[in-house]
Design a protein around this nucleic acid. Structure first.
Length: 194
DNA sequence: TTCGGGATCGTCT
DNA sequence: GACGATCCCGAAC
């Protein structure tokens, strides 16, 4: 039930919306963890001042964004936390979808031990939290989402209502800070921000 | 070779 | 609500 390559070869705005209700899976030696995606953000490098790839050459950490969709873009933020992104669209079009929150569904005990908490809501309610809960690190940079360790499954679930809101913590991005490019499972108790 | 900034989180008030 | 931790990468010297 893995999402096919074609799913990712579209605009990040379409992929970000369609990822709500899908299931993110990470397979590690310690075990398998899974969560339903309830919150995403789209970053469109060509036109988006908030994107890492905005007016930047395809070097260093952003290189993977310039390949085809369906690969993992993982980076470290504030020297402490990792953020998990999905590369979308065709080669030479640097667009990604940031995964911001999950509803834990499988391997919850393992997530709890990694996160040092038993509070279900605290496991995956933020981009840095969910990578820690699933054990995703910079070693997963460039991982093929059609491979066998880090991938996204279709669930057959259709969220009853999806909302679009401005993105979180990009005040530095000027007008782009107001674009409604954050997508949420409306009413989910597992969001990073209400 | 150095310097500065950041798509966050947890703790403290 | 405010702030400190902490490090990779890109840009400039």
């Amino acid at each position: 039930m893995k999402l096919p390559r074609e799913f990712y070869l579209r605009s990040a705005l379409e992929v970000a919306r369609d990822l709500i209700g899908k299931r993110l899976v990470h397979v590690t030696p310690e075990g398998i963890t899974k969560g339903i995606i309830v919150e995403t953000e789209a970053y469109l490098g060509k036109i988006d001042p908030a994107a890492h790839s905005y007016k930047a050459p395809p070097t260093g950490r952003t290189a993977i964004q310039y390949g085809p969709g369906g690969y993992a873009y993982v980076y470290t933020i504030y020297g402490l936390h990792c953020c998990m992104n999905v590369v979308t669209n065709l080669p030479q079009v640097p667009e990604v979808v940031l995964i911001r929150a999950l509803e834990p569904v499988s391997g919850v005990e393992l997530m709890g031990s990694r996160r040092q908490t038993t509070d279900l809501h605290a496991l995956c309610s933020g981009p840095g939290k969910l990578t820690q809960a699933l054990g995703i690190t910079r070693a997963d940079y460039g991982a093929d989402l059609l491979g066998d360790t880090l991938y996204i499954e279709d669930t057959g679930i259709t969220p009853p209502e999806i909302d679009a809101t401005p993105r979180i913590n990009i005040d530095y991005a000027g007008d782009a800070a107001a674009y409604p490019w954050r997508f949420i499972w409306k009413g989910s108790p597992f969001l990073s921000v209400k």
